[in-house]
């Protein structure tokens, strides 16, 4: 009788504590909370929760989300460790996709070497993964050097609607609208400032022409009037401005070309960001 009474006394307290108390830090609740943080985009806190429970719960999705979190946080080294941990899982092709995207983000300039070394063939089996890999390889060539790839090779992996964009990137890479530093220098040697005008720096070009012209005139005028000292000062100054003008024209063509390169890479970056680096869309939050 006492025993039954004891049970009856204990039971309600159990129910009571169930309704009022929550195990905030249980494995299941950590997972729920991590999923919530993940969907809110708080990847740092989410990955901390996932890491805490992954040893207890073996789950492909959790491993994959950890990889996604590290990728979003730009912690590619951690992401890589996680790829090797789960190469046998069902999601392995998704892991591979992320692995290649991360490799590309880490160094888009040497990514194409995977392709050239033919390392990838042993790991990639699925078509969609291979397609992402080829797209990234094309982009890597555009970032660095075409290495005598044909336009067809570069454009082929892309969707039909993107092919014209990639094709124009290719044309640009093959023949960028550079200005010749040598030509700019020669032009400015013949007519001061004309090299700068050729590059598009009209204000600087006209200024260079006026300054050298004025100093040359002053030197000539003073020599004619037999003011030799003054004449030599103006000649010296004029010579420096003339030299600086040739030098500056060469440099301004170089800077122009640097701008062209910058804008091209900016275009590539923008394209990749719009495509989110060809990352598949994962629907974990709906």
């Amino acid at each position: 009788m006492i025993k039954i009474l004891a049970i009856f006394l204990l039971l309600p307290s159990c129910i009571y504590s169930q309704s009022k108390s929550i195990n905030f830090h249980s494995i299941q609740n950590k997972k729920l909370f991590a999923d919530h943080l993940f969907c809110e985009g708080d990847y740092l806190r989410a990955v901390e929760e996932y890491e805490a429970i992954r040893k207890t719960i073996k789950n492909d999705t959790i491993d994959f989300k950890i990889l996604l979190c590290y990728s979003e946080l730009g912690l590619y080294q951690q992401a890589e460790q996680n790829v090797s941990l789960s190469s046998n899982s069902d999601l392995s092709s998704e892991f591979n996709k992320l692995f290649y995207i991360n490799q590309f983000k880490k160094d888009q300039y040497s990514f194409y070497s995977f392709y050239e070394l033919r390392d990838y063939q042993f790991t990639i089996k699925k078509f969609s993964t291979l397609n992402i890999f080829h797209k990234l390889t094309s982009m890597s060539y555009l970032y660095t050097d075409l290495n005598s790839r044909t336009k067809e090779e570069i454009v082929k992996p892309f969707d039909v609607k993107d092919r014209s964009t990639i094709s124009s990137f290719y044309d640009w890479k093959l023949d960028p609208p550079y200005k010749s530093p040598a030509l700019a220098g020669i032009l400015s040697a013949i007519i001061p400032g004309s090299g700068k005008m050729y590059v598009g720096e009209w204000g600087d070009g006209i200024t260079a022409l006026l300054v050298t012209g004025l100093l040359a005139f002053l030197a000539y005028d003073n020599f004619r009037a037999n003011h030799d000292t003054r004449a030599w000062i103006f000649t010296g100054l004029g010579a420096f401005f003339y030299g600086g003008n040739i030098y500056g024209s060469v440099v301004s063509a170089q800077i122009f070309n640097a701008r062209i390169n910058f804008e091209f890479k900016d275009g590539l970056n923008l394209f990749l960001e719009q495509k989110n680096y060809f990352m598949p869309e994962y629907d974990f939050c709906n």
Binding site: D204, T207, A208, V211, F240, F241, G243, G244, N245, Y247, G248, V251
Partner: peptide, 10 residues
């Protein structure tokens, strides 16, 4: 000096 005179012009 050449760099400086170019800068001066600019």
């Amino acid at each position: 000096m050449l760099m400086f005179f170019d800068r001066f012009t600019r």
